[in-house]
Design a protein around this nucleic acid. Sequence first.
DNA 1: TTTTAAAATATTGTTAACAATATTAAAAAA
DNA 2: TTTTTTAATATTGTTAACAATATTTTAAAA
Lengths: 211, 211
Amino acid sequence: MSSFMFNPQSNISLREKVIHDIRSAILRGHIKPGERLKESDIADQMGVSRGPVREAIRQLEREGLIISPPYRETVVVDLDADEIREFLIPIRYHLESTVIKKYMHLMDEPFFDRLQGIVDEMGKPLRSPEIYPLVELDLSFHESIIHLAAERTVQTMWQSISHHIKLHFNKNTEDYDRENFVQDHALLLSTLRTKDLGRIQQDLLAHMNLF
Amino acid sequence: MSSFMFNPQSNISLREKVIHDIRSAILRGHIKPGERLKESDIADQMGVSRGPVREAIRQLEREGLIISPPYRETVVVDLDADEIREFLIPIRYHLESTVIKKYMHLMDEPFFDRLQGIVDEMGKPLRSPEIYPLVELDLSFHESIIHLAAERTVQTMWQSISHHIKLHFNKNTEDYDRENFVQDHALLLSTLRTKDLGRIQQDLLAHMNLF
DNA sequence: TTTTAAAATATTGTTAACAATATTAAAAAA
DNA sequence: TTTTTTAATATTGTTAACAATATTTTAAAA
């Protein structure tokens, strides 16, 4: 008998699906920055009660994706592009770079294969008018690296950052290099394979337009 | 008539008070890492229903202070001290340092007076056996600096980080330099007054044991 | 005695009704 | 007409009952 095992089905609660769907709608731009989120409408559309929706709102609020003052309407945040470039991208670089440095030894062939798989995927939807799937693939590439770290703090940090980055790129499409994004990641992958920290950091800085 | 105006009373909802009280209990160590949070008990003790408590839990979950899997018990996180030192403190330095660099020009006398006020406060409870009030003062000193930045992203980031740092110091008291913490901040303040970025960064690195 | 299965209990998830606050519309006053 | 006040409406906040899941206890089987 093979040693294959199924992963246990994680017990997903309603609120988690609600969180996912609202966040996805925000990141896809279906609900635009500044637009309102009425919890009764969301609940009705989803066919659930307001309870889980409210819990989802609380989590997304803390995530920084929505603003929800007491007794006031809930709106999607309008992130300033400069904030992201000045503060968030550098922190993102710092986090990813630190993970790479510490967990370089965990980068084995299966790991590189996974990254290669994502790069392969990147080629497919290239002619899509939507930028959303590209950004998702992009961030999943980098998330694979982040996942080398077992530290809970790192993952919590990454989640906060990555959602904001996604929102940013999906809004500020001019910041996003659609043309070269496949070969950019292919290049990054090949540099990762060298395990030359200096070169990796250099490529990563360039990749994030930090020079 | 004087131009004095009262600040509007912010409309605090029940859940916000609940969030504050639970978080405070965690940071003070009244509820220890690994300990369970039973929402019905909390609700009963606070004399409210479970609704606001659940919303508070969702927000604290996203904050990384508690872990709450579906249908499973909610527990306080047990942060690994090394994670904080390796990942969080450097990010904290990066954030504060960037804010100082960008908003140095906003540091005026009233600002320095405010910091001096906090340093003065620090002298008072020095003989208290609890470390909690010291950590609060410490972080409020640095928060004053962070508040120079208007960027929402910066504040969101800071909140995530600062709560974790507080939890860390309140737990790992050996990491906390009780003896020199007044003069450490007094020194930092005097260096800030020079507005010499290089020196400030140097002092800040030392202050955070990053050398 | 140990292991397994079933029942009982405890806890979290969800819902729908009710309460409090804010917003809008209408009426009154200037 | 414009401003202010008041009433009506809409929306968020809170609650308590009910449903679903997990844990513990008990009983049965090995």
